[in-house]
Computed example of a mutant assay.
Amino acid sequence: MRIQTEEWRRFIPGVRMYKGKKTLFYNGETLYDEVTGEYFIYSEEEQELWKVIIILPGVEVIPQSTFNSGNLEAVIMSDTVKRIEESAFVYCKSLEFVKLSRNLECIGENAFCACFSLLSIFIPPSCREIGDVAFAACHKLINFNVPQHTRLGEHVIGNTALIRGSTFELNQYGEYDASINTNINNWIKNINGNDAEFALHRACSSYYPMTQIIYEIVKRQGLMSFKKKNQIGITPLEYLEANPFAEDIDQNTIMKRYVLEMMGEAV
Results as ranks from 00 to 15, higher is better:
M1F: 11
I3R: 03
Q4S: 13
E6L: 10
R9F: 14
G14T: 07
V15M: 11
R16A: 14
Y18W: 06
K22P: 09
T23G: 00
T23N: 04
T23D: 01
Y26I: 12
G28N: 00
E29L: 10
T30S: 15
E34H: 13
Y39T: 11
Y39M: 12
E44K: 15
E46W: 11
Q47I: 15
E48N: 12
L49I: 12
L56A: 04
L56N: 05
G58T: 03
V59W: 11
I62Q: 00
I62G: 00
N68M: 12
S69H: 03
S69D: 08
N71A: 01
L72N: 07
E73C: 04
I76C: 02
I76G: 02
M77N: 03
V81T: 05
A88P: 13
A88H: 13
Y91P: 09
E96H: 05
E96W: 03
F97Y: 12
V98K: 01
L100G: 03
L100H: 07
S101H: 01
C106Q: 14
I107Y: 00
G108I: 03
G108A: 01
E109W: 06
E109I: 04
A111S: 14
C113I: 07
A114H: 08
C115R: 07
C115S: 01
L118P: 06
L119C: 00
S120K: 05
I123F: 04
P124V: 06
S126P: 11
S126T: 15
E129A: 11
I130M: 08
G131H: 08
D132M: 07
D132K: 11
A136D: 10
K140A: 10
K140R: 11
I142F: 06
N143I: 11
P147S: 10
T150P: 02
G153M: 10
E154I: 13
G158Y: 03
N159G: 00
T160E: 05
I163S: 07
G165Q: 05
G165N: 14
F168G: 00
Y173Q: 09
A178Q: 04
A178D: 08
I180M: 05
I180A: 04
N181V: 02
N183C: 06
I184R: 03
K189W: 10
N190M: 09
N192S: 11
D195I: 14
R202Y: 05
P209C: 01
I213H: 14
I214Q: 02
E216G: 15
I217Y: 04
V218M: 15
K219W: 15
R220D: 13
M224Y: 11
S225L: 06
F226V: 05
N230E: 07
Q231D: 07
I232S: 01
I232M: 03
G233N: 06
G233V: 12
G233S: 06
T235C: 02
L237T: 03
L237C: 01
E238Q: 14
L240H: 03
E241T: 10
E241N: 09
N243H: 07
P244S: 07
P244Y: 05
A246Y: 04
D248W: 01
Q251R: 13
N252C: 01
R257W: 15
V259R: 13
L260E: 15
G264L: 07
A266H: 14
